[in-house]
Design a protein around this nucleic acid. Structure first.
Lengths: 346, 346
DNA sequence: TGTTAGCACTCGTTTTGGTTGAGTGCTAAT
DNA sequence: ATTAGCACTCAACCAAAACGAGTGCTAACA
């Protein structure tokens, strides 16, 4: 990337900052008044012409002020990160109650975040892929129904009703439970391979269909289409005119409703290893989802140990308040860590 | 309600029908051509003037055609219901897979419905208030954690992790399980009164806190803020210009996101006993929620026996295709009945 | 050589005013 | 009671004009 020179940088920064606030194209006069470098509008104009040539800013039409380009935003954000990286994120307490259901925590978090930032937000539950089985139990609910309960590390509980033709006597039930627990306990899902399954079924004898259904439950637990995503504040989009012309808004909100696009995002996010901070910024077309080409998306990945990863994301206009958003996310990231971890071993 | 006279009725009907199709104010000429009564536009004009005076139609501005008022729609819908009541709803098979999770069925239904009608749709899971306890079980997950599983009639399963200071020995656990099951089995939640609770705790001795937490889980199961609502097609709103000016659309979609308003709706719906068909139509201000004053809402209540009730709703513009929507709902209502009932005892 | 004042120019936005046409209400004829 | 006819209304459309924010360029200046 080209070297800009201090003055140009300052001007570019001023332009972007002002644009972030107003959302209107910003002209040379404004900058000459605002920026602490005392220069006339004419000089600024010259510099702006240069900046435009370099691709950092854009003139929407001949006689309008300038607007940051994606490249401009990128510059801004990158420098922001540089500047911020040293600082320790100041942690205001967001009052996450230590409620026992992760689902509730997440719903609460995403709501708070949306409210606080006034952007659209999403959060994915930590994927339990690679998570360990902790406890399995079958119990007879009535003659033809067996309830299978599976508990994974992190207290993710999954249950399923299994239908059987003939009632199981107590003893068999006990034996099956024993078998399942001793065999599966402590395993990750990926460790349950075909050999193991065959062995299990063999030992279960005539009840192999039950085993199959239990394993099915386990498989479901980590299935990808089950990746839960919570969203909030989708309608905040309407607060930003550049996003809210009905065509655009409709698509965006649709994406939020469907959640399919969000999943793609989260996968992308988690694969692309976010540098040290774990925070990533996608500006405009950088986003892996076409629908969001007019937005910026800031994501953070949180981890719970044992490879459980989740993603928080904020979707807003390109002129979002990156500083605030990134601080917020950093903050939340650590709090989430605490809250959920605390939850786990409490 | 005033008597209209056949001719006025015919004209009113023609106006509304035409308006439903086009969404444009309809003038006297159009009606004189369309309606099978051969009258000149002038005559129609006279009649229209009358209808306006009676409040069935409205002139948006002096030199425009007429548009149905809420009262007009109401007239139309009421007569529609009268006419349709005799007929048996024709049942096309919607291919609801008999998957075992109610949640999935509902999500699927609401999606199909939204897709089919092109309106916004919602569905509430059948409330288990008044539902019976079928099975309770505690099991030790590890030293400090006990998993409590509660199964209600209709196979609604709820679980909760309970934290304890000291591990429980096997025997105690067995005793507690026995106690809980014998005492609670077959009871509805409202039947679990204070006396019972005290008695239970007494018998549990030092483990009364565990009992308390189990009961808590039961209480949560039927708590009102837990009333699950699934929605789909909220963005269909954008398809109807009269609803999609950004102010309106934002509020509406917001309502869909928050779901609070929808809850109010569903409560209203279920209390107000929908006549024989179980289908209700709210036009404009008839809706109990202010946000929807420019919409019409059609709801149907489905029942699963044992007092479990759920509500399906369709939210669209006032000029929605009532006929289609009501047919659709009637249809779905019965299918849902089958699918979920089938699910229950399968 | 870098900065600045001045000025002509551009171009989107807003305002204005005129035209159009669908639709009405009223009146008089049928 | 119905209808033809006509004057009237008014939102919608369109083109021309006025506006003004902002530019690029040039010439003067430190």
């Amino acid at each position: 990337m080209e070297e800009l020179g201090e003055r140009k940088e300052k001007i570019l920064n001023a332009i972007i900052k002002h644009y972030l606030e107003t959302g209107e194209p910003v002209g040379s006069r404004v900058i000459s008044k605002i920026a602490d470098l005392s220069l006339s509008s004419a000089t600024i104009r010259n510099e702006m012409a240069d900046l435009e040539e370099l691709g950092y800013i854009i003139q929407p039409h001949t006689s309008a002020g300038r607007v940051p380009s994606d490249k401009g935003y990128r510059f801004y954000v990158d420098h922001l990160i540089e500047a911020k990286n040293q600082e320790v994120a100041e942690i205001k307490d967001l009052m996450i109650e230590k409620t026992e259901k992760m689902e509730k925590v997440l719903k609460q978090v995403v709501k708070i975040l949306a409210n606080d930032t006034q952007y659209a937000t999403m959060i994915s539950a930590p994927s339990v892929r690679g998570n360990r089985l902790k406890f399995v139990q079958l119990s007879a609910v009535d003659e033809n129904q067996i309830l299978s309960v599976v508990v994974m590390d992190g207290n993710v509980v999954k249950n399923k009703i299994i239908h059987v033709e003939d009632p199981l006597d107590n003893e068999t039930m006990l034996k099956l439970n024993m078998l399942l627990n001793t065999t599966l306990n402590g395993l990750t899902v990926s460790e349950i391979n075909l050999g193991l399954i065959t062995k299990l079924k063999e030992q279960a004898g005539i009840h192999e269909d039950i085993i199959a259904q239990v394993l099915n439950t386990v498989a479901e637990t980590i299935s990808d289409d089950d990746l839960e995503i919570y969203t909030s504040g989708a309608t905040n989009i309407f607060k930003y005119p550049e996003l809210s012309d009905s065509q655009n808004a409709s698509e965006l909100i649709s994406a939020f409703e469907e959640k399919q696009a969000l999943k793609e995002f989260i996968e992308e996010t988690q694969s692309e290893d976010g540098e040290d901070t774990g925070i990533q910024v996608y500006i405009g077309n950088e986003a892996p989802v076409q629908t969001m080409k007019d937005c910026s998306v800031v994501t953070a990945t949180y981890e719970l140990g044992g490879g459980m990863k989740g993603t928080i994301g904020i979707i807003g206009p390109k002129r979002m308040d990156y500083e605030k958003v990134m601080d917020n996310l950093k903050n939340l990231k650590s709090q989430l860590d605490n809250a959920l971890r605390g939850d786990l071993d409490k």
